[in-house]
Amino acid sequence: MEFHVPVIDISPYVDGGSETERRAVAGAIDAAASTVGFMQITGHAIPRQVLDDFADAVDSFFDLDPATKQDYRTPPEINRGYSPPKSESLSLSLGVESATRMNDFFEAFNVGVSAAAYPHIEFSAYDYAENLWPTQVPGFRAPVEAYFAHAARIARTLTTAFADALELPPGYFTRFTDHSLDVLRMNNYALPPGSIDLDGELTGMGEHTDYGIVTVLWADQAPGLQILGADTRWHDVQPADDALLVNLGDLMARWTNERWLSTLHRVMPPITNGTIQRRRSAAFFHDGNPDARIETLPCCIGDGSKYEPITIADHLRAKLAGSRALQPNANAAREAARVLAATSGDGSPVE
């Protein structure tokens, strides 16, 4: 069967569609979440000017010289600021000692919700850290915040649809997300000529699953993104015109007892004639409240839960300790097994 990422028009949830229209969207989401774990969404109502201004802001930061960008680095436990090329290994978030460790050549810049957004609640400074806004790019903050607001709106629209798709009470996920750890990670896959050896082990971003509830991804229509299918093969995916890619994270897989999939994906180098081509993306991670406790939904337990209950904070810290602090995650056995099945030489190709 041909691999396919469904395109779903979510406008009935954005524009106040009828109950019948919303039910159809919820059904399409359930089908995509159960079979692929990815979907492409249209009807999201982000104005073109917002997207264009955001893309220009992303370019302006990554066009800064390397020394200037280094000024915005933060310790691994602070999920903000700049990550230079080859400083992270996404496969370690799964506990997998990848052959491509430390060859993730992407660079990234993270912003997120700070404690000031929720002045009535006491939080860990690590979870709700202040953002670092680059003073060398005065036109950076406003377009990034504008896009962040739209991505947050879409993520919450999707969780509303998720409750319908799972036949849960309306607004079910609100109590788990009303002070969500939302982070926007802007990625760049183009590096200056001669700055890196284009060897056979190079990866743009190593194989990983996303950590939270749902990810909303804006990306160039450039090659590189690959998704691991049920056939244990890697499949190329490029966004359709005007579509955003959406995928589920590990927390949603835990909630649904893997009725819905947190799908492994990676980014391969967009190389043409030996040169890395520019590829940009921005992943908005809607991760939920750090103090929320995640356990299998009663409607999904079936013959028994595959996961022990866990708080969102504990889950995310184990994941980030892998990718950013390079400490293999010992709590991701199910995800790691899928990676090894796809790369173990048992007949499942890795390309």
Rank of each mutant, 00 (worst) to 15 (best):
V5H: 02
Y13D: 08
A28P: 01
D30K: 00
D30Q: 00
A31Q: 05
F54R: 11
S60R: 06
P75W: 09
P75M: 12
P76S: 13
K86G: 04
L90P: 01
L90W: 03
V96F: 00
S98A: 13
S98Y: 01
R101L: 10
R101K: 12
N103P: 01
D104E: 08
F109P: 06
S114H: 14
P119C: 07
H120C: 03
H120N: 08
I121G: 11
I121E: 14
E122D: 15
Y128M: 12
P134C: 04
P138G: 07
F140D: 11
A155T: 13
A155M: 12
A155P: 06
L158V: 02
T159G: 03
A161E: 03
F162K: 00
L166T: 03
L166M: 07
P170Q: 13
T174M: 10
V183S: 09
L184D: 07
S195M: 08
G204T: 11
T209F: 01
W218H: 13
A230N: 06
A240L: 09
D241M: 10
L248P: 00
E258Q: 06
W260A: 00
S262C: 04
T263P: 00
L264A: 14
H265C: 10
M268W: 10
P270H: 08
P270T: 07
T272C: 12
A282P: 10
P290W: 12
P290R: 11
A292D: 01
E295T: 13
L297I: 08
P298M: 02
P298S: 03
G304D: 02
S305L: 03
P309W: 05
I310K: 02
A318R: 12
A318G: 14
G322C: 02
S323C: 04
A325P: 04
L326V: 04
A337N: 00
A341N: 08
S344R: 07
E351N: 14
